[in-house]
Amino acid sequence: MSVKIEASEGGMPHDTMLGIGVVGALVCLYIVYLNSLMSTEVFAFFGGLAAVIALWWGTDSIKTLCSYGLGTGVPSAGMISLGSGVIAFLFASKLAGISPLLVPIGCIFIAAIIGAILGFISDKVLNMNIPVMTRMIAELTIVGSLTMLGFTAMVSGSFIFTDLIAGSVSFLGMEVTSYAASVIGGCVLATIFMLGAIAIQHPFNACLGPNESWDRTQMCALECGFLSMLVVAIMSVAFLSLFAVVISFAISVILWGWSYSEYIKLSKRDAFAWLDSKPIREVGGE
């Protein structure tokens, strides 16, 4: 039985964050679906926002899980989150065969089931004995799958499986459908996977310590999410019209710049001192 160490005082209750995370990500993902209804691509960036909201919530899940003395387990928690999430995401994108509206909500249910099984195995079979393990691994799997779904929707404008395996190449002036030029065939998913996996573990990993504070860690989560959005926007040049790419890119740059400057302000607030070109200050006086 591991002992719980309170990571940081105050902040929003975890259940509230879970609610905001699930509802916010779902709403944003359904807005991406407007792309198909209105035959446009400009709503793609809402996929990135869905991923950022999921990452914001997932950071708190990792913090809750890792408050049981899993110092070096923080990056691993990020990896298992996306690693199990990608299964749920690919399975859910096939649900579009029944109805495209089923994909985001189906993704959450499938991820919850996979995550609960994995959490149960880690907790009971591998005997890690951490009380919140099953629930948090399930949450992290949902976060991972929503992150993949969101960034995939942002890079290609769609989360429907048949769209993800069909890219178009212009050959002698004609548009030819090609698997190798698609999101899955071109393995852009590999990049999205790593973007999500590092972004979900980084905020708590970077801010852990005795003076960790809730708002600074969560601001770091937003910063990592918007930074990932920014590069996903660059990669979307391969799939979307230039207008949609410029909109995604502009929104990502503005949000990232805001969150980065806020994060620096919060670090300045929490730091013991903010020195420029000063010598080592020996603790306990000279």
């Binding site: 980084h202 905020p203 990993n205 970077a206 801010c207 852990l208 310590g209 005795p210 003076n211 960790e212 600074r216 860690t217 770091c220 910063e223 990592c224 980065y260 994060y263 620096i264 919060l266 670090s267 300045k268 929490d270 730091a271 013991f272 001192a273 903010w274 020195l275 420029d276 070109s277 000063k278 200050r281 603790v283």
Partner: peptide
Amino acid sequence: TAYLGRTASLAKFEQPVYI
């Protein structure tokens, strides 16, 4: 972000952030 985050979280031990 890693340097700022880790160093700011060590304020209790009087480790300053050297910009």
